[in-house]
Amino acid sequence: MTSPDNLPGSPDSGETPEVPVPAVPESPVARRGMFGAQDTGDTSGYGGLVVRRAPQISTPRPYGGYFDELVDALGLDDAIERVVVDRGELTLHVKRERLVEVCQKLRDDPALRFELSLGVTGVHYPHLAGEELHAVIHLCSMTHNRRVRVEASAPDADPHIPSTVGVYPGHDWHEREAYDFFGIIFDGHPALTRIMMPDDWEGFPQRKDYPLGGIPVEYRGATIPSPDQRRSYS
């Protein structure tokens, strides 16, 4: 039942020690084996696990439903990097320099009328080189009862995304939160300061490379590591 994956130095497990966040961004396979064990530590006998990374999907037309109509009405195809229709939701990946223009049109065009913004949030994808930081905006049109998700990305090295407070004043606190947790700098925000963490806090806690913290639990000499240090399935 021993899989080659669990043997030390097997060619399948690669030369470098495996880490929870994969080091090779190009490979679609994020990790093999149950817990990333390098020695015979995995006693389950199950080493055939392959963790795949999600591919970057882009949906071709027709998108279905009201999505085609919406993208046509927006008519800013040059500002949109890709369109994703997944699980009944429409996502527009927008070039960051055109984000404000797209939001403005989504809000003001009578055929679109996305009056209600549900805020900005960040997601950190360290494996997507050149677009590690995403700002995700959920919009809702009360007039037409529709929803759309607008996403803009920025590289870790240049974490700037234009602020949309001018279009949706309610984004004030949301952008501060995304800055606080992810370090995304929203250019043009009236007062981009930390909102949840103390003002003198260092680092951006919801980035993937930021440790969770916590202390190992000790019981009769044996220790259980804190949650982010434990072996995991995914």
């Binding site: 950190h124 959920h138 949301h174 399935y233």
Partner: peptide, 21 residues
């Protein structure tokens, strides 16, 4: 707003909290 990378744990979960807004 729930994001998954295909694993057994959430990749990112964000709540649009009405109290916050």
């Amino acid at each position: 707003h729930v994001v998954s990378d295909g694993g057994t744990r959430p990749y990112r979960v964000h709540f649009r909290e009405p109290s916050f807004c």
